[in-house]
C-alpha cells in the first residue's frame, strides 16, 4: 500500500498542529503515523449498519445518574495572583506574549 501520509500532507499537519520538528523526528513520526493507519484500516473490514449510532461515551447518562445542573453564577477565585504565578511571563497583572500576528487597518 502506498503511504497515506505523504511528506507534503505531513508538513501540512505539522503546521496545523503548531509544531516544529527536526528532520529526524519528522521521519520517525511520519513512519509511526503510517504504521498506525495500517492498524486503523482494520476498521474498514466491519460491515456497519447505517443505523449504528456513534458513541461518544460508553456509559449512558440517564437523568437519574446525571448530576443536577449548577446555578449559572459567578464565583470569584479566592486568589487570582496565585493563578497568574503559573504563567511564564507576567507584568502588572497581565500575561506577556510576543507580537500577535495582525494586519494594521488603514
Amino acid at each position: 500500500m502506498s503511504e497515506e501520509i505523504t511528506p507534503e500532507l505531513f508538513t501540512h499537519l505539522v503546521e496545523l498542529a503548531a509544531l516544529e520538528l527536526t528532520a529526524e523526528e519528522a521521519e520517525y513520526l511520519r513512519k509511526q503515523l503510517n504504521n498506525q493507519l495500517k492498524a486503523i484500516h482494520e476498521l474498514q473490514a466491519i460491515p456497519l449498519d447505517p443505523q449504528t449510532p456513534a458513541a461518544s461515551h460508553g456509559v449512558s447518562y440517564p437523568p437519574a445518574a446525571s448530576p443536577a445542573l449548577r446555578e449559572d453564577e459567578i464565583l470569584r477565585h479566592p486568589n487570582p495572583a496565585r493563578l497568574l504565578r503559573t504563567a511564564p511571563e507576567v507584568a502588572d497583572g497581565y500575561i506577556v506574549v510576543p507580537e500577535i500576528p495582525h494586519q494594521d487597518l488603514k
Binding site: 509544531l19 516544529e20 523526528e25 503515523l33 510576543p98
Partner: peptide, 29 residues
C-alpha cells in the same frame, strides 16, 4: 518571532515524541 512562533517553539521543545504523534494523528483522523 511572533505569538504563533512562540506556540510552535514552546510545543516543539516541550513535548516529547508521543504527544506530538498523538496530536498529528488526532488532527488527521
Amino acid at each position: 518571532g511572533d505569538l504563533r512562533s512562540l506556540y510552535r517553539k514552546s510545543r516543539a521543545e516541550g513535548f516529547g515524541a508521543q504527544p506530538k504523534l498523538r496530536i498529528l494523528m488526532g488532527m488527521y483522523v
